Computed example of a mutant assay.
Amino acid sequence: MVTPSLVKQYVYCPTLPWLEVRVGRLEPPTPSMESAILTADEKEEIAREAGIPPPYRVEIPLEYPRLRLRGVIDLVAGPHGRRGYWIMEAKKHPRRPRASKHFQAQLLAYALLATKTLGPVYRATLYIGGTTRTLEINQRHLQTAEKLVKKTLKIVEEEEPPLTRQPPQKCMYCFYRKLCPNANPHL
């Protein structure tokens, strides 16, 4: 099974999900990771501020075996009549704008997971450190998410890690850089 978090890692660097699945999640929580945990009340407050209509359910575990996808969605609102559900993924700390592509991929994977298990998702909001971005979910978004899930699954099932080239600044702070065959070609 893959998670939307592994899809996020795949978009950031295709080697990360392979390392995480094959080597194991070795990265201990840093103080900033621990301080980034949002409570259920904080998630609901963010949803209200973003204009997401209740009812809310927080930290909803879902699994869709057919795609081998599972995850825990930060917040699911609805259903709202025929439109369906509005979901939210929340990150407490701000990020650089260029860093949001992989978080958007994670959000789309959650939208796909919720659509396949709960019903149609019509909107998805990504909250990152005070900034929100809301997408009107369409079929193209769901197709993109499904392709990313399948690519991530393929990567983690391979015996050998994917060969990729990343900008050095991306690898500089990566916890897995000492284990990465792309950073250390002699491994």
Rank of each mutant, 00 (worst) to 15 (best):
P181H: 13
P17M: 06
Q106N: 03
I37E: 11
K147L: 11
H93R: 14
T144W: 07
R95D: 09
R70L: 08
P14Y: 02
L107W: 10
F103Q: 11
L112S: 02
R82M: 13
A124W: 10
E42W: 11
S5Y: 13
F175G: 04
P55A: 07
T132L: 10
H80L: 13
Q106F: 07
F175W: 13
R68C: 06
T3D: 00
Y10M: 08
E157Q: 15
V76L: 04
I73N: 01
E159T: 13
Y173R: 15
I60M: 14
L135E: 10
H93I: 10
G129P: 08
I137R: 00
G51A: 09
T125R: 08
Q166A: 13
G71A: 09
A183Y: 13
I52G: 02
P120N: 14
G119R: 10
K150V: 07
H102C: 01
T39I: 07
A36T: 02
E59V: 10
R48V: 13
M88D: 06
E146S: 10
L108N: 04
A183N: 09
H186M: 11
G119A: 12
L187Y: 14
R66T: 06
T115N: 04
I37G: 03
G129R: 11
A36H: 04
P97L: 08
P161M: 09
H141V: 01
N182G: 00
P54Q: 04
E89D: 15
P168I: 09
G81P: 04
P17T: 04
E157W: 12
P161K: 05
N184F: 01
L69H: 02
Y56C: 05
D74E: 08
W86D: 03
P14H: 03
L135Q: 06
A105V: 05
Y10D: 03
P31E: 03
V21S: 08
P97M: 09
T134I: 07
P61H: 11
T115P: 00
Y12F: 15
V23E: 10
P29S: 09
V72D: 00
G130N: 12
P17L: 05
T144V: 12
A114E: 03
K151L: 15
R177V: 11
I87W: 05
I155N: 01
Y56V: 02
L126D: 04
E42S: 09
Y176S: 09
A90N: 07
K147Q: 11
R22I: 05
L153W: 03
Y127Q: 06
K92F: 09
L148I: 04
A90K: 06
R70D: 00
L113M: 04
E89S: 14
E159N: 11
M33I: 08
L108A: 11
L19N: 04
L67I: 01
K151I: 06
E59H: 12
M1D: 06
E42F: 13
L163Q: 14
Y12E: 15
R68F: 06
T144E: 14
Q106C: 00
L75T: 01
Q139P: 03
R133V: 12
T134Y: 05
P94M: 11
I60E: 15
P29A: 11
G130P: 07
H102P: 05
T144D: 09
G119E: 10
L163W: 14
R95Q: 15
A114R: 02
L38N: 02
G119P: 05
L38W: 04
L67N: 02
M88A: 13
E158Y: 07
R140V: 12
G71W: 06
Q143L: 14
G71N: 05
P168T: 09
